[in-house]
């Protein structure tokens, strides 16, 4: 899987590597390393995967150009906008060659991002959308498409009828909210389907597990679950397993955390509509590097969505 990822990344990188267009073999460049600071929403395995992709891109660019590229990964301990702003400001103080941000709330992050603009530090966002009016490249998947894919899959699994539940992530995170809205729209299309409960897990597996257990107690006829973040499906899957409802209550998860993959392998979750965190980290670095080189970058880079099932894992 790693080899396939590296191959795919190299292949898709080709058209974007304009600064390498000279096609020369690159001798070691003794200039100072290019330094990019990657700031995710919080400490979380999903972002570790994004960081892995970012490090892969840095290694690729270093090898291709001969100039060392460093990624500094600085995560807030909690998914809190003011904490994230503090980290962003402190990163600005070190004058990096670029900031790569996963914004918790583009409006709440705006004032801090304006400071980066004042300091002439280029920014790239991933897994989120930039504030209105800012000329910043966004790297990510179509969140609505991801939620729609999961909800449609669940609807088909349960025969487009019955009670279902949605586990929200962080209510203030726009991507989580958007997924939830799109999932609700799918279920609203089917008259025999009803969303009977919506939990809020705040991107915590433990919270998701507790909420899912309580919701399943309150709604014994529940037939399926979809979620809006990476932690939710893991907690919901654990709750399904603990309540002995594996197979009876269907789950279509999100993303590709190791726990999620294990739940699919164990038959607790049927599948997962997975964004590609490694790809997002990878392309965010490529975009940040292009910006640092003075190149123009696209407004949006869509890294796509995988549907993970027991057959293709």
């Amino acid at each position: 899987m790693k080899t396939a990822f590296a191959f795919a990344a190299m292949l898709t990188a080709a058209p974007f590597l304009a600064p390498l267009a000279a096609g020369q073999a690159h001798a070691a460049d003794n200039s100072a390393p290019l330094r990019f600071v990657l700031i995710p929403k919080t400490v979380h395995p999903w972002f570790d995967k994004a960081n892995n992709g970012a490090q892969a891109a840095a290694a690729m660019i270093s090898q291709a150009t001969g100039r060392k590229v460093e990624i500094e990964y600085r995560a807030p301990q909690t998914a809190d906008v003011s904490s994230q702003n503090d980290i962003i400001e402190r990163a600005i103080a070190t004058h990096p060659d670029g900031l790569i941000l996963d914004l918790l709330d583009e409006k709440g992050n705006r004032a801090t991002m304006d400071e980066a603009v004042d300091e002439k530090i280029p920014m790239t966002v991933f897994d989120s959308l930039p504030p209105e009016g800012m000329d910043i490249t966004a790297v990510g998947a179509d969140f609505c498409e991801q939620g729609t894919m999961a909800a449609e899959r669940l609807a088909n699994l349960v025969g487009k009828k019955g009670e279902v539940a949605i586990m929200m992530g962080v209510p203030t995170a726009p991507n989580h909210t958007l997924r939830a809205e799109c999932e609700k729209k799918v279920f609203a299309k089917y008259p025999d389907m009803k969303v009977v409960a919506t939990g809020v897990d705040n991107d915590s597996i433990e919270t998701a597990q507790k909420q899912a257990s309580a919701i399943m107690q309150a709604h014994p006829d529940l037939v399926g679950w979809v979620e809006c973040d990476a932690s939710g499906p893991v907690g919901v899957g654990q709750a399904i397993r603990e309540s002995g409802k594996t197979g009876k209550v269907k789950e279509v998860g999100l993303d590709n955390l190791n726990d999620m993959i294990q739940l699919i392998k164990d038959g607790v979750a049927e599948s997962s509509a997975s964004s590609r965190p490694e790809m997002q980290g990878y392309w965010a670095v490529v975009s940040a590097w292009q910006r640092a080189m003075g190149q123009k970058t696209p407004k949006y880079i869509d890294t796509g969505i995988d549907l993970l099932t027991s057959k293709n894992l």
Partner: peptide
């Protein structure tokens, strides 16, 4: 003051 700083009233203000 935090609301004035962020420009939005975040429900998570004060959590830390």
């Amino acid at each position: 003051l935090m609301v004035a700083r962020l420009g939005t009233a975040q429900p998570s203000i004060g959590d830390t």
